[in-house]
Design a protein around this nucleic acid. Structure first.
Length: 224
DNA sequence: GCATGATCATGC
DNA sequence: GCATGATCATGC
């Protein structure tokens, strides 16, 4: 695949992102000499990693924003032609091991969501992967109201973790930030401290943004 | 039909 | 095993 140097500024990053808008994955794969898979069944993260590459991201699998020098996190988000998100958005894993040492202000979730470059991927129903089109990017910072919601959800989650209430750690709470399993499969277990201080095991979890939340975020496209 | 829970690839 | 990148697919 053609190599891309890291962007030197947020302006340059946004400029690159805007140049991708309107192009199909087939066009981009040809232009950058990439092997586009037939489907995402075996490579669910392929598009995200492809776009990272096209924009010159370097973070790898470190728990930090994709462009650490710029403080910008890249998120691809599949949308239908009307702009409705088709999936939730994974943010980061939940720290189940040292929850008491975590604070919202220094959390990975806050660091990543401080500045997000949203890259919508337009998906037409029943169309092949190579016909998906890159939408107009949106550089987003949460509003004060959005921060408040995210902070509340995060703190409620971490409180459950601190109390060892892993049974309550499901996808049904959280206004914007949701907790769901994040593992290879449902048999994966990790050591945690239970509600009586005992060592027990539970399924690894991740923080995800609900699609209802990202839908509101993406509507800012029309007004910015 | 959609949200919740399950799952896939990769690097170290 | 855990972090990154996420979407799949079943149950309600």
């Amino acid at each position: 695949m053609t190599t891309v140097t890291p962007p030197q500024s947020i302006e340059q990053l946004l400029e690159r992102a805007e140049k991708l808008a309107g192009k199909s994955l087939a066009q981009l794969a040809e232009e950058f000499r990439a092997q586009l898979p037939d489907h995402l069944l075996l490579e669910k993260g392929w598009i995200g990693q492809f776009i990272e590459h096209l924009l010159g991201a370097t973070s790898g699998s470190l728990p930090q924003p994709d462009f650490p020098e710029l403080g910008v996190e890249l998120k691809t988000i599949p949308i239908n032609p009307l702009g409705k998100p088709l999936e939730s958005t994974f943010v980061s894993v939940v720290n189940l091991h040292q929850p008491a040492s975590e604070q919202w202000e220094t959390s990975i979730v806050k660091k990543k969501l401080e500045h997000v470059l949203w890259m919508p991927i337009i998906v037409h129903p029943n169309s092949p992967l190579n016909q998906r089109i890159i939408g107009m990017p949106l550089l987003w910072r949460p509003s004060a109201d959005e921060w408040q919601i995210l902070k509340n959800d995060w703190e409620e989650t971490m409180e459950k973790v601190c109390l060892g209430k892993f049974g309550q750690l499901n996808a049904r709470f959280g206004q914007a930030l949701q907790v769901r399993p994040k593992a290879a499969n449902s048999k994966v277990l990790t050591d945690v401290v239970g509600s009586d201080g005992e060592i027990t095991q539970t399924l690894p979890r991740g923080f995800y943004l609900r699609s209802s939340f990202t839908q509101k975020v993406l509507t800012q496209l029309s007004y910015s």
